[in-house]
Structure formats: structure tokens, C-alpha cells
Amino acid sequence: MNQTDRANRRSSLFAWALALPMPIWQTLFFVAALLFLVVMSFWSVQNFRVTPDFTFDNWIKIYSAGYFRVTYVRTVLYALLAATLASLIAFPCAYGLAFKASPLMRRIVVASLIMPYFTSYLVRANSWKILLTDQGVINSVLGTVGLGPLPMTSNLFAVMIGYLTLILPIVILLQYFSLANVDRRLIEAAHNLRCGRVRTVFQVIIPSARTGLILAATFAFILSFGDFVSPSFLGNNKPPTLTVLMVDAVKSGSQWPRAAVVALTMVATLLLVAFLAMNFAYGEKRKRP
């Protein structure tokens, strides 16, 4: 009895020692950081110093500011546009990967699409700047055939190029994974029933891959919504997005509480979007037989 007791105690020591480091670390430095962000949003700034307080001032100031509301709507629209563009551009690619490419090509392409996420997004954005400026590579090429220069920086086009750099690979990958899981027998059945190629894509393949396609678009939205590099460096901060406002509030002043308000608004928006998208992705499937 005594011996098993001791063994049990040692065993639970073992379990705790392995189970606890992660939750302790994440609670101390991640959960606490988010919670403190909530607390900070009620503090005030006095003589350029952040002071503990309990005031709704920051919330009221930010939410009643016209520029904040305009920027909020703009950021949402930008992210929506980016998610739509990425989904449309990615689909033929994912479709080709799932149904036309050889296994070797699939492996090479999938590996090449993962790789960019572990390289510097900053440097890639800088490269686009080189490619897109008035004296840049693309405009020089256009110039030799008598076109241009087309304005391709500091505008919506440049911002979208930046967003796509960030999101296109993951959208292709997620779409590909969902298309690869579509039951091939369904497609064959459709063909046997003389359903044309294009009709099969829209009436058989897209509906069965719907969850993954929505998931991909959601990821695209989330990543673009929270991106700072593209609107800042490729869009030149004009017009700003929420991330630009937030960085300004922190870096060029001690308006940390207001930055906290913007940050929390963004987190709430992302949670809402994720929730709606999941409902949309899984919800209607259940209704169908």
C-alpha cells in the first residue's frame, strides 16, 4: 500500500511537471497580456504618462472620432477585398493541384507555398516596392513597349499586392487540402450523368469543398485585417488602416490606452468574423440531408 502510494505520488509529480510549463508560460505572458490590455483601455494619460484610472474616456474618444469609424470600415473592406481576390486567384491553382498535377509536382508546390511563411515578409514587401515604383522594373518593361508609367505604389493596388503576398500561399494550400478531400466518386457520377466540366465544378466540387473554401477565405481576411506592413510600406500609410492607427498611437506618443482600445476592437472583430465564418461553413451543411 505504502509503496503504491509513493509510486502514485511520484507518478503525479511526473504528470504535473510535464503538463504545467506550457499553461504557466502562456498564462503569465499571453493571457495576462491580453487581460492587461483590457485593463489598460480604462486608464488615462496624464502629462504624457500612463496612469492607472477607471475612465471610459478612451473608448468614448475613439468611438466618437470620425476618422476611426472611417478607418474601421476601410480596414474591413480592404480585408474583404483581399480575401475575395485571393480566393478567386487561388481557386484554379488549388483545383489544378488537386485534380491535374502529378504527385511530384504537388509535393514541390506545397513545399514552395509553405516556405514563404518562414521568410521575411518585410523584405518581400520591400521587393515589391522595387518592382512597382514609377522607375521600377515593371514600369521599365512597360516603358519599352510604350506604356506607362502606371502608378502602382501608394495606392490600393500596391496594398492588395502586399496582402496577396501574405495570404495567397495559405489560401491556395487550404483550398487544395479541401479539394483533395472531395470524393472522386461524386465527380465521376456527375460526369456519367453528363454533367459538363464547368457545371461539375460549380454544382459538385465547390459545394462539397465548401467548408475548406470558407476557412481559407476567413484566414485571408484575418491575416489582411491585422497586417501592418502592406498598408504602411506599400500603401505609404495613406489612407491608414487600423493597424497604422494603432502603431501611431503607441510609437508617436504615449497613447497606449487608446492603442489598447483599437487593439481590442480588432480582436473582437476577428473573433466575430471567425465565429460567423464557422457558422456559415458548418451550419448549412447540417441542414442538408
Binding site: F29, L37, F225, D227, A259, A260, A263, M266, V267
Partner: peptide, 21 residues
């Protein structure tokens, strides 16, 4: 607890970490 941090935009994580640390 483990998997949520990478899904939050890094800029927001940065602000939150700065505020706490």
C-alpha cells in the same frame, strides 16, 4: 492556450506584450 497566439495579428500581440512587460 497553446495554439491561439499565432492566430492573433502580430501587431496586436506586440502592443499587448509591450503593455504587460
Amino acid at each position: 492556450l497553446a495554439f491561439i497566439p499565432p492566430t492573433i495579428p502580430v501587431i496586436i500581440l506586440g502592443v499587448a506584450m509591450l503593455v504587460l512587460l
